[in-house]
């Protein structure tokens, strides 16, 4: 029998660094880092397409955002794992079925890519067209100009929102628990379901999520500092950026 209000700190102490929990942390981190990387690459490609002179590329980019931002991430996760194999049996190169982790990663990446497309688009638009003209006048081709001149300057603008996306992803990755990827939240869920120690297990995962998001905020502040190189005014100190990043933590929303 559990006594009401009796929080057992022992459960937390015993499990905070248990192999089970650490395994969940590792999966959560892997999902976040990989999906942000793939999503970032997708967002860069579709963001550039969004500003293309070719109408079909622009349309593809708009359609991508429309579809993946307009449907719930949860629906997309279930779609990639259960529905797509039903629709198209053999679609995946690996014996027809993605593992839960793979399907979750695809779902998170493709969904993230839609948000990243918007962010990259805004970043690219923030770069003065005079920069492209200067690069062209030096004999730089379009792709070289994009890589060496436009993208590095867009970075300054996109790092704060990408940091927010990263933090949101640390938390949103828990949605793949529905296709039984044993990331941090699913580990806790299985435990509280069998032990009924809800409070303890929710505290365990919350401590971990807070630790991860805090570290991510600090990294974001550092990156913002780095990419503002050469910009005047030198702007906010690192301290102010850290505070700002921590404030944003409280504000950003899930999907």
């Amino acid at each position: 029998m559990l006594l009401a209000g009796a929080l057992d700190w022992g459960v937390i102490g015993d499990n905070l660094f248990s192999d089970l929990v650490l395994g969940g942390v590792r999966l959560t981190l892997a999902l976040t880092v990989l999906s942000m990387t793939i999503g970032g690459a997708l967002g860069t490609v579709f963001g550039i397409m969004r500003g293309s002179r070719i109408a079909a590329l622009r349309a593809a980019s708009v359609g991508y955002i429309w579809l993946f931002r307009g449907t719930p991430l949860l629906v997309q996760i279930v779609f990639w794992f259960f529905a797509l194999p039903q629709l198209w049996p053999g679609w995946a190169p690996w014996n027809g079925q993605l593992s839960p982790f793979q399907a979750g990663l695809v779902a998170l990446s493709v969904n993230e890519g839609a948000y990243m497309t918007e962010i990259m688009r805004a970043g690219l638009l923030s770069v003065d067209p005079g920069q492209v003209e200067a690069a062209k006048s030096l004999g730089m081709t379009g792709p070289l100009t994009m890589r060496r001149i436009v993208l590095p300057q867009a970075m300054r603008v996109v790092i704060p929102p990408i940091g927010n996306e990263f933090i949101a992803m640390l938390k949103n990755s828990s949605l793949v628990s529905v296709i039984s990827v044993s990331e941090l939240f699913l580990v806790a869920k299985l435990q509280y379901s069998s032990t009924l120690r809800y409070l303890e297990w929710l505290l365990i995962v919350s401590i971990w999520y807070l630790a991860l998001t805090t570290v991510a905020s600090l990294a974001q502040a550092w990156l913002e500092q780095r990419f503002s190189r050469g910009r005047r005014p030198q702007g906010r100190s690192l301290g102010a950026r850290v505070t700002g990043a921590l404030e944003r933590l409280g504000r950003d929303t899930g999907r």
Binding site: D128, G130, Q131, E133, A134, A135, K136, S137, L138, G139, M140, T141, G142, I149, P152, Q153, R156, R229, G230, R231
Partner: peptide
Amino acid sequence: DRRTARVRREIGMVFQRFNLFPH
């Protein structure tokens, strides 16, 4: 784009607003 860029290499341009690369 490539061939136009080749010709542009040999034509320098200085802009009213400098357009230096700030990064």
